[in-house]
Amino acid sequence: MLQVDALCKAFKEETASKHDRVHAVDDVTFTVEEGQFFTLLGPSGCGKTTTLRCIAGLERPDTGEIVVDDHVLFSHDRRISIAANERNLGMVFQSYAIWPHMNVFDNVAFPLRVGKRRRTPKAEVTERVERALNVVELGHLAGRYATKLSGGQQQRLALARALVIEPKLLLLDEPLSNLDAKLRESLRFELKRLQREQGITTVYVTHDQSEALSMSNAVAVMKDGRISQLGDPFDIYLKPANPFVADFVGTTNFIDGVVREQTPDGWVVHTADGPLTVAATSGVGVGDECVVCVRPEHVEVLRDDSSTGGDNVLTGEVQTRLFVGEAMEYQVRLPNSQLQCRTPAAARLSSGKPVSLHLPPAHCTALPRPEARAGSR
C-alpha cells in the first residue's frame, strides 16, 4: 500500500554556516500493508513528523521515493513530485486546524467544495458529509459551530473531514496529544475501532508509547532521523533491539555486565551483583560489555525469606515504594545497583525489608552498553 524507500530530508541550522545541514530524516525505509495501522514512535525531534509531512507532500524530501498503491508520489531519481492536494491523502493535524467560523457540516464539506472537488454535486456532498459524520458519531451536531465543541468532538470532526474525501491513506499527526488523559484513553479505543471497521490504511505519529503499543499493527521507533527498530508492538516491548528502544518504550532495568559464556540455557553474564543467565542477546557476544535488560513486571519477588540463593536470584533491600492503584512499585537496592519491580497492590512490602528477586532468564536480554556502542562508531 505505502512504500517509503531511502527517504532523506535535511534542514539548514539557523545558527550554522550555509554549508551545515541537519538530517531530520536520514535514510528511512518502511512498508505499510493495506488496512494496517502503522505508527511512527519517538521523542521530539526524532524525525517522525517530518517523515509524515513528506508523505503528505507538505515537505519535499532531498532523496528517496514514496509510493502509495503503486502510484509514485515522489521520486528523486525519476524527478516526480505530486502536489499535496493531488495525492488523495487524508491528514489530521495535532491542532485539528478546523474552521472556527463554520459549523460542523461545513467544516467536513470544505474539502469537497474546493480545488478539483468544487464541482462535486450538492447531493453527493450532503451524502458523503452525513456518512462521515455518522461514522464518527457527530451526525446530531451537524449544525453546531466548531468553537462550541469539546476537545474530543473537535478531534472527531477533524477525523471526519479527513475521511470525507475517501482517502487512500490516512495520516495522523499526534491527534490526541491536546486531550486530557481520560479522554485520550477512551478515544484510542474509538479511533482503533473506526480504523478497523473502515479498513483504513493509517500512518500515525506519536511520542506516547501507550498509544503506539495499544493501537498499532506495526511500530517504527525513531531516533535521530533513523528507524531504531521496526516490528509489531509485542516485539518492540518484549524484544528491544537496543538500549534506546528498551529505555524509551516502557520502563526497563539495566544491569551492567560482561558476557562470559554461552550455555545450553542461554548466555551467562557476569555482573557486580552476581552471574545472570539471559535467554537472548542482540548485538553482543562472548567477551563483550553489555547491559542486561529486564522489565519491572517480570522481576519476581520471592515470598520465602529463606530464598537467598539460586540461579538469577539477587538479594537486596526495599528502599522506596509507590502505590499506583492496580499495583505497587518498588525500588530495591542491591549491593552494587538498583532494580525496580512491580507487584499486585495487595502484596505490600515495607521499606527497609530485605528481599530476594528472581530475574527469569526468558525475560532477560543482553544488549550493547550505550557507552560501548557510541565508542565503536
Rank of each mutant, 00 (worst) to 15 (best):
R260V: 12
Q229S: 08
I165C: 14
V245H: 13
R193M: 10
Q195H: 12
T147R: 15
R196A: 14
L230I: 08
L171N: 08
S216P: 01
S228D: 08
T281M: 10
S150F: 06
L176M: 07
D180R: 10
T281L: 13
S214W: 00
R260E: 15
S177N: 01
G250S: 11
V268C: 11
T252S: 15
I255L: 15
L169F: 11
T202Q: 06
A158V: 04
K182D: 00
L230D: 07
V258P: 03
F189K: 12
V219C: 01
E197W: 08
K168R: 14
T202I: 04
N178E: 00
A220K: 12
L276G: 09
S282H: 15
I227L: 04
S228N: 05
P167S: 04
V205A: 06
L191A: 08
M222A: 05
S214R: 02
Q195C: 01
D235A: 04
L171S: 05
K182N: 01
Y204L: 03
S210L: 13
P264A: 03
P275T: 00
V221D: 06
F244G: 04
L191F: 00
D224V: 09
A218H: 12
I255M: 14
L276E: 05
D232A: 12
E197R: 15
R161L: 11
Q153L: 06
A218P: 00
I165H: 11
V284R: 00
A212M: 07
S210T: 14
F189H: 14
R260D: 12
L230N: 11
G231N: 07
E197M: 13
P175D: 09
P264Q: 07
